[in-house]
């Protein structure tokens, strides 16, 4: 199981270290974000403004050497504004496709629940299919492709909450929250200048390579049984985890193991990513339910 060169792993951890220096005091969030990227998933951050969502997204893009686009979702945002549109080129007498901001490796969809359901579904379709079809022509999205969507807490006015079927498209929901006192002290001491210093550790090709390595991480039979137990338990009453969620959980655990420089998934990997993968898929008290499921199913 050594198809890709070792240095990749070292550089991944280096990237993680850089991310941790940029987004202060959020090791779990940065790690989960990287897991989401490596597992070819998308990330949902549900939190109040100003806690570092954009910082995380830009840092991720910069560190990994990927392009970055931010789209501020508003109620009047149209699908065309997002995906791009064909505009008539008067000189050449043809329609030319002008790609929208979604054609970037890392897309920050800010306050995704403020847009109309129509725009939301356009985004989510692009996330799932990883391509955009406009006027009968298909435009593939770049590789790697990661959407970080942020969502305001639902009780705020003027929002259209994402339906559960669409929440399922996000691989992980990352908790961000306020930084702790020491991280905030460091933040206040250093000011905003430090962000400019973020170096690029990887490039797009290396990220794609790492994504391929994730799929090669070994998942032993006891782990598969454990995943099945978790799925079965989650389906006892109420919402259950979809097969897509289970595939995502498996992939996320693989990515987590890769970040630990291991060639095989261990039960702790599943347990580490499970709350983030399961939480938003199990209804309003999803995190509590996920914790209950994890507590109830015996670990192999």
């Amino acid at each position: 199981m050594t198809t890709s060169p070792r240095p990749d792993l070292g550089r991944l951890n280096e990237a993680l270290a850089v991310l941790d220096q940029t987004v202060l005091g959020k090791p779990l969030a940065t790690r989960l974000a990287l897991v989401g990227l490596l597992a070819r998933g998308h990330i949902l951050i549900e939190d109040i403004p100003g806690v570092g969502k954009t910082t995380l997204a830009t840092a991720l893009a910069t560190t990994l050497g990927l392009g970055f686009q931010r789209i501020q979702f508003t109620s009047d945002l149209l699908p065309g504004d997002l995906l791009g549109s064909s505009i008539y080129d008067r000189e050449r007498q043809v329609f030319t496709f002008h790609p929208g901001p979604i054609f970037a490796p890392v897309v920050l969809a800010d306050e995704v629940n403020r847009a109309s359901p129509k725009t939301q579904s356009a985004l989510l379709e692009a996330m799932e299919e990883r391509r955009v079809t406009i006027d009968g022509r298909t435009h593939p999205l770049p590789l790697p492709f990661l959407v970080i969507a942020t969502q305001n807490p639902l009780e705020q006015a003027g929002t259209s909450p994402l339906p559960e079927s669409q929440l399922d498209r996000f691989l992980v929901r990352v908790p961000l929250g306020f930084p702790d006192r020491s991280a905030e002290r460091q933040l206040l001491t250093e000011g905003r200048e430090r962000r400019a210093e973020v170096p690029a550790v990887l490039d797009a090709a290396a990220v794609v390579l790492a994504q391929e390595r994730v799929t090669a991480i070994h998942v032993a039979a006891p782990i598969i049984e454990y995943l099945l137990d978790l799925a079965e338990r989650s389906r006892q009453g109420g919402h259950g985890l979809s097969p897509r969620a289970m595939l995502g959980l498996r992939r996320a655990a693989q990515a987590w193991a890769l970040l630990d420089r291991r060639d095989q998934v261990e039960p702790e990997d599943v347990r580490a990513v499970a709350p983030a993968v399961m939480g938003h898929r199990l209804g309003a008290d999803g995190l509590a339910r996920a914790a209950a499921i994890l507590a109830a199913v015996p670990v192999p």
């Binding site: 261990e266 039960p267 702790e268 347990r271 994890l294 507590a295 109830a296 199913v297 015996p298 670990v299």
Partner: peptide, 8 residues
Amino acid sequence: RTDEGPRD
């Protein structure tokens, strides 16, 4: 414990 992984 039953809810504890081998490594933990």
